[in-house]
């Protein structure tokens, strides 16, 4: 901690606070107070309250909660629907990490040079990132439509028969993943481009002199020096992907009361979607809160891995 120049040094030596110092403390609390209050009320308390709710059989109407201890958690372990949601979410996360992240790195590597209209091209890739998920999911309902969708139209041009993206359980998750790659690839691309810009050009110049091929330069210089960026992107993407909700809900909701957005045979059910339905469609708030705790635990694990690895990998240059 740096000593503040405002502190009157003689007073500090005597162990007294100058009036100015007292004022600074008072204003310090006044400045951060509203935000601390907001965070405690809207995030701190709900976090603890969520744990509390999860130990009750508690309906969303809120009448007569009944304490059942770990009952909701035991129910979770034996709930095939929850296990399926967990599995689907994991498939989604793996799909995004396996396809979207490498693709964004590839795009960043390709963009990392002077290109005619390079900026405009880059903006095109970034455009979906800033758009409203609800609106683009509606568009993708139409893009993924079996008979009239343009995705199947283009696949048809290369001879691939129609795929029932939104009606075939097998294709539900791939459909969501394709849409999410489209939506999110530009985000990580821009981060990777920033990471690439930080690699000093002299390494490449030296490799050029040694006659190393582009591929070899990429493997031996780019990848190792980019590893802090890659790690950051990998883990934040993983965290964000575990929270997938809107895409599934919008793509697979039908216009009936019973429709849950979980897709054919629950093939598009995700943790958050299932918890949302449990709480707000079926009224089991206690059970939903237990699911939220599981999701929270997953996110905490990823964060702690991130912090551990970051200490070892990331070097903050002054």
């Amino acid at each position: 901690m740096n000593m503040d120049t405002r502190i009157n040094s003689t007073n500090a030596l005597r162990g007294q606070m100058s009036p100015r110092r007292k004022l600074e403390i008072a204003w310090g609390f006044a400045f951060v107070g509203p935000v601390i209050l907001g965070i405690l009320v809207f995030m701190g308390f709900p976090t603890l309250y969520g744990f509390f709710i999860s130990t009750f059989k508690w309906s969303i109407i809120g009448k007569n909660p009944e304490f059942i201890g770990l009952g909701n958690y035991l129910r979770l372990i034996n709930d095939p629907q929850f296990l399926k949601a967990l599995k689907n979410t994991t498939v989604y996360v793996v799909g995004i990490l396996l396809f979207s992240v490498p693709l964004s790195l590839l795009l960043a590597a390709l963009f990392n040079r002077k290109l005619p209209f390079g900026e405009i091209l880059k903006i095109t890739y970034y455009l979906p990132v800033i758009t409203m998920m609800v609106a683009v999911s509606m568009v993708w309902r139409w893009v993924l439509s079996t008979e009239y969708g343009i995705l199947n139209y283009f696949l048809g041009l290369v001879g691939i028969p129609n795929i029932a993206w939104l009606n075939d359980p097998k294709w539900a998750m791939p459909g969501i993943i394709i849409m999410s790659i489209w939506k999110g690839v530009g985000f990580n691309m821009v981060l990777f481009i920033a990471g690439l810009k930080n690699i000093p050009a002299m390494y490449y110049e030296a490799a050029e002199i040694d006659g190393a091929s582009s591929l070899r330069q990429f493997l031996r210089i780019t990848l190792p020096l980019l590893s802090p960026t890659t790690l950051f992107i990998f883990l934040t993407t993983m965290m964000n992907s575990f929270q997938i909700f809107e895409q599934a809900m919008i793509l697979f909701s039908g216009a009936t009361e019973e429709s849950t957005g979980a897709g054919p045979d629950n093939a598009a059910n995700t943790i958050v979607l299932y918890l949302y339905n449990n709480a707000f469609k079926w009224g089991s708030a206690g059970y939903a809160a237990a699911q939220a705790v599981i999701l929270f635990a997953i996110l905490i694990v990823i964060t702690s891995v991130q912090m551990k690895l970051q200490k070892r990998w990331v070097h903050y240059d002054a």
Binding site: F42, M43, F45, P46, T47, Y49, G50, I53, I60, Q243, F245, V272, L275, Y276, A279, F280, A285, A288, A289, A292, L295, F296, L299
Partner: peptide, 8 residues
Amino acid sequence: QVLMVPLY
């Protein structure tokens, strides 16, 4: 997403 229920 984690806080939906208590926040509601």
